[in-house]
Write a protein that binds this DNA or RNA. Sequence first.
DNA 1: CAGAAGATCATCT
DNA 2: GATGATCTTCTGT
Length: 203
Amino acid sequence: MLQSARGGVPSSRVTPGLLRLPAIEAAPLLLGWIICRKTPAGTLKLRIVEVEAYHQNDPASHSYRGETKRAAPMFKAGGHIYVYFTYGMHYAINIVTGPAGRGEAVLLRAAEPLEGIEIMQQNRGLTDIKKLAAGPGRLAQALGITDTSLSGKILNKSSIFLEPPLEPVDTKDIVASPRIGISKNPDPLWRFYIKNSPYISRV
DNA sequence: CAGAAGATCATCT
DNA sequence: GATGATCTTCTGT
């Protein structure tokens, strides 16, 4: 692809190599990375503090039943975005990982607001910074996601993209916990979060 | 085409 | 801890 089609930004600069890994491996590595979005009102940035890895081998995953219309973006190559709408009112943002066809993605569950906080407060209708993005639906709302038009798009500096951690996350501060599901699933879904982060909902 | 469930959240007791 | 909100997506008939 021509660089001009990406605003002069090489693909390697907008799609981190870790997104070629399976979701279970990419998920904990995404902690500390910064999710960024450019909006007409300004640029929004948040540090990822909680994620969940989805793959084809658990019935709770949208990719479990194959490539449906909604979940099709999950089967694209790592670095694509998967946005879905649920409960009649909430959006959630995923980063697709792995090679095309795997059906894996990492759900962004919570993040620490860093930049564009006033805009996020307006998007959320509240001021408490700890609650701006403490949950998948809240994070999407803070970022101004009001539809699924980003679903299937690739990470891009002009819309939504990732930046590397400002400082590395200490491995000892990462907690992993399996998602409750069908018993004896040898390959469950895993949630990863930064221990003691105040930007994670305790519910 | 009907029915059910949903990768959630705000609010109330 | 319990409940209502609100509507898309998928499944089975």
